[in-house]
């Protein structure tokens, strides 16, 4: 058996094992991650909603990056339109 065959087999086993590890829990982990992201979103945009945030100086920089996810976030939080007055989204 050539060395490449061994590597091939190893790669296949690793693939199957990681699928076996991840497949059942993909949804749960994704949801847990989303919950954390939602909290982070709230922290970043907190100042705009009247919640004082001592780290605004830093979070302000993140706002453009998170903007892409902003619409999905506020609709998921049960707010049909953007909750921010001077920050229209949809």
């Amino acid at each position: 058996m050539a060395w490449t065959d061994v590597r091939q087999t190893l790669r296949r086993v690793t693939y199957l094992a990681s699928e076996f590890y991840n497949a059942p829990y993909r949804g749960v982990v994704a949801r847990a991650k989303r919950d954390e992201d939602d909290l982070f979103m709230l922290l970043v945009f907190s100042e705009m909603m009247g919640i004082p945030n001592p780290a605004t100086y830093y979070t302000l920089e993140l706002q453009p990056i998170l903007l892409e996810r902003f619409h999905a976030w506020h609709t998921r939080m049960g707010m049909e339109h953007s909750p921010l007055d001077d920050f229209r989204c949809c």
């Binding site: 199957l16 699928e19 059942p24 949801r31």
Partner: peptide
């Protein structure tokens, strides 16, 4: 959606079903 709904190798799925 690549989270809950994702086509999975049938051997993996069998392994999961069996062990679950």
């Amino acid at each position: 959606d690549d989270v809950d709904f994702i086509p999975t190798n049938r051997v993996v799925l069998w392994g999961h079903h069996f062990t679950a």
